[in-house]
Design a protein around this nucleic acid. Sequence first.
DNA 1: ATATATTTTTAGACAAAGGTAAAAATTTAT
DNA 2: ATAAATTTTTACCTTTGTCTAAAAATATAT
Lengths: 217, 217
Amino acid sequence: MTRSEENYLKAIYHLGKTDKKAVATNAISEQMDTKPSSVTDMLKRLSEKGMVNYRKYQGVQLTEKGRSIALSIIRKHRLWEVFLVEKLGFSWDEVHEVAEQLEHVHSEKLIDELDRHLGYPTVDPHGDPIPTKTGEIKKSIKKPLSDLEIGHQGICVGVKDSSPAFLKFLDKYGITLGHVIRVIDVEEFDGSFHIQIEDRQMHISDQIANNLYIEIN
Amino acid sequence: MTRSEENYLKAIYHLGKTDKKAVATNAISEQMDTKPSSVTDMLKRLSEKGMVNYRKYQGVQLTEKGRSIALSIIRKHRLWEVFLVEKLGFSWDEVHEVAEQLEHVHSEKLIDELDRHLGYPTVDPHGDPIPTKTGEIKKSIKKPLSDLEIGHQGICVGVKDSSPAFLKFLDKYGITLGHVIRVIDVEEFDGSFHIQIEDRQMHISDQIANNLYIEIN
DNA sequence: ATATATTTTTAGACAAAGGTAAAAATTTAT
DNA sequence: ATAAATTTTTACCTTTGTCTAAAAATATAT
């Protein structure tokens, strides 16, 4: 497996994980920031290798083999993210780029020992589940705050849009990863949210609520 | 810098570090396990980029820029080796291959934090010095046991030939990395060594003595 | 249902990094 | 000082992974 092949498998996994339908060439090209023609080339290569089922003009789906490799890359990515945050003091929004590189280091022993070193974590710093060695993965229990019903609560684990402006907003109002957030009420006329965050209460727009990911237990 | 360019710079550094003369194309090709023609191509590329001084048929030398990059790769390689041994429980002879991959991960913050996490080590698990962030490196203080004078001692830090047969021999006689070894006497007629290792004494052939690296303080 | 728009594929090119085989330069040996 | 041997380079080919431009297939709209 080359690095590029691994990245394609990962992209196809992420694009296909919600519904079980085939993933479109253009969707992959957008996700990977390459041209559709390059994607077509790679899909043929991956198909040759038995990693995907590809039918011209119909999109692709991962085979069992492809899915298993994709999950092993995701496992590595998320374990490294935990390492960077827990051991090296990175903040949750700095880890992605570095983990993108570390995930391609090949060594079974390395990842097994890293897992042990970290105490066998089950989620990464963004609240996403870490696949097991055998490729099992818990369905993500993360959803936008805006999907919570009144009275329900969860832990703030991430953001959808991580623009500097939004991150600055969170900082300003003291909203941090790990905080417990409960929906107290939703305004009828503008869809804004009245929330309890730790020991205080505040109002946020539905746009903000839609960008905040909450983990429910 | 591509991965391949980084590997060439590292190879040229290692081949050139003893004497200050230019490094030959064939030497590089042997070290990197590629063909001389491929080396010539790469030397031209590196020369374009100002990493080496290259004169046709005369070999290459690193420029300041090239040397500095080579040292930063070596720094990363050795810090990762320390990490693998100290934190993940690898043995000193398992780390090389994995460190070869990790050394190409690009992130200044990553390596700074790793250095801190490891307590700013100065040597890797083989006793080789770790270059500083600014590219200074202590001359290696490692030499074969056979170079020690009678009465002198040092710490066993590695082997020259790491064949399984030799490693098995060391295991059998309980010679381990980190042991203090002192030369008690050298036999005139066969050059064999009488040594003190930790709390016991033993006899080893000059061939063995030549294969054991000792660090002197 | 046919025309238009969009998506996907093909064809052909390029750069990186490698390889072969032959030519050129350098070194060594007589 | 030549001849022979060795080293290095050149010229050209291969694979990976990308791109552009044009052609083909599919989807959408009137």
